[in-house]
Amino acid sequence: MGSYIVRRVLQMILVVFIISMVAFFVIQLPPGDFVTSYVSSIAAGDRITQDAILALRQQFGLDEPLLMQYFRWITNVLQGNFGLSFQLQRTVGDLLAERLPLTLAITIPTTIFVYAVAIPIGIYSAVKQYSVGDYLFTFVGFIGLAIPNFLLGIVLIYLSTRYFGGNVGGLFSPEFENAPWSVARVLDMSRNMALAIIIIGTSGTAATMRVMRGMLLDELSQAYVETARAKGLSEWRLIMKYPVRVAVSPVLSTVGFTLPAMISGTEITATVLNLPTTGPLLLNAVKSQDMFLAASIILILSVLTVIGTFISDLLLVWADPRIRL
């Protein structure tokens, strides 16, 4: 076990290093750079001289070869300095410090929400296959899968503002927007967050629910379930102990992918909901070729993915003794 973990950690470092390189270069692939897009965005009124453009490039270090830029960036990153966001004229570190905690504050409860809702429903649907409840959850599940999250977001925001007096998007009601932290502000945030969690988590819940149902249906007809039944165990007890235990491990193994998917996969939803998470930040950074910001976010996402995969692998080993290290 110990040597496995060490081996995996070394692999993870290598993978993250490669991803950081790919991320950095991919962002440079579109023609032009930040200065080009900056100039074109302000070009309407003022005329910018060629000298000024050159000066800007020099200031941002964009005139150096790509490899040099990368190495300067990555050495800084290793020292905890993520560079400067050209567009926002703030350090990437500052921006992330502002956005990441809120992102995690939404993502982690959403992940818990997804599994806490999907697994019990999946179990119920499989055990009571073709019952009214199963059909109902299947119906709701397909709707959840088919409706894009952002559309669901718009509908729910409409309903909540129209009928429940909620506010339009954002994580805080206007009166708490810039207020200092207090109990009331936390309550206000959790209320808005609940909506966000439901919106962001719906499609994941629907998918996980279907996977759990399918996996468990396969297991329910296995011979070992009959053996357990022949022992005289009560039906629910044996279902929870045997087939659910076997069926849940592939579902658990997806936990690792959910984390980054929630963070990066919610740009549009977060934009619609006006959530101050990293999603919209990344979207903007990529659009304006704000390369240090974009590359840093991608780097952090990939670190999360790699760590998440590692955690789910460990979970699988714990859940299924047939998997050997």
């Binding site: 070992y224 009959e226 053996t227 235990r245």
Partner: peptide, 10 residues
């Protein structure tokens, strides 16, 4: 089937 009649994870 002794192969499948026992739970693989217990």
């Amino acid at each position: 089937e002794p192969m499948t009649s026992l739970s693989p994870v217990h």
